[in-house]
Amino acid sequence: MTTVTSSDEAVLRPPALPHRWTRARVAGYFLVGLWLAFFIGLAIYLYGAWNIGLIETYGPKYWSGLKTTLTLVAISFLLGMIISIPVAIAGLSKNRFARRLSGGYVYFFRGTPLLAQVFLIYYGLGSFRPQLQDLGLWGFFRDAWSCAILAFTLNTAAYQAVILRGAIKSVSTGQWEAASALGLSKRVTFWKIILPQALIVALRPYGNELILLLKGSAIVAIITIYDLMGETRRAYAQTFDFQTYLWAAVIYFVIVELIRNLWDWIERRLTRHLIR
C-alpha cells in the first residue's frame, strides 16, 4: 500500500510538445479571426442601428410571431413523435406490406422539400374544395394553421420514424434474448427494456430534428401565417431596415442555442448510469 503512493512523485512526465507555427495552427487563428470579425461586425452594426422606436413598434409583433413559431413547432413535433412510433414499428415488422407502407411514407416525406409539402397541402388540396366539402373536411383545410400543422407533423414524423427505427435496431439482440429467457413478453420487453435504451441513442438525432424543424418553420409564411419570419418580412416591408432580419436571425440563434443546452442537460441526466 505504501509503495503505491510514494511512487506518485517520481513519475516522469513526457516533455512538453514544441509550440510550432504549423499551417493548421495559422489557418485556425485565421478562421477564429474570421468568426470574431463577423461577431464584432454584427455587434457594432446592431449597436449603431439601435432604434428604440423600431423596437417598441415591432417588438410585440416579433413576440407574437415567436409564439406562433414555437407553438407550431412544439405541436407538430409532439404529434410527429406519436405518429412516428407506429411508422417505425411497421418499418421493423416482419410483415412485408407494413414495411413497404412505412418505407413509402418515409421515402416520400424525406425525398421532397418541406416547402413543396406545405404548398401542396395548402394550395394543392385547396383546389379540391368541392370534394373536400363533400367529405366534410373543408373546415379543416380552409384554415392555414391546421394545414401547416398537418404538413409539419407528417414531415417530422417521417424523419423521427427513421431516427427511432435506427435507434431500436442499435439495441443488441442479446437484450431481446435475455428478456425472453426471463420470460418477459415481447410487449413488456419493447416498452420497458428496448425503447428506454433506444431513446438514449435517439436523443441527439431528435435534438437535430427539432432544430431543423424550428428553422424549417420559417417557410410557413408562404401560406399566410405570421410566424417569426412572417412578422420579420412584414416589418422589413414597412421599414426597409435590414436590422429586422438580423434580429430575427439573432432570435432563431438564441432558441437553437437554448435547445442545444437543454439537450446537453437531458443527455447528462439520462446517461448518469453509464458514467464510470
Binding site: Y29, A37, G41
Partner: peptide, 15 residues
C-alpha cells in the same frame, strides 16, 4: 496572447 492574435486576424479580414 491568443485573443490578440485572433483579433489581428479579424482586422486583416475586415480590411
Amino acid at each position: 496572447k491568443r485573443f490578440a492574435l485572433a483579433a489581428s486576424a479579424a482586422i486583416v479580414v475586415l480590411t
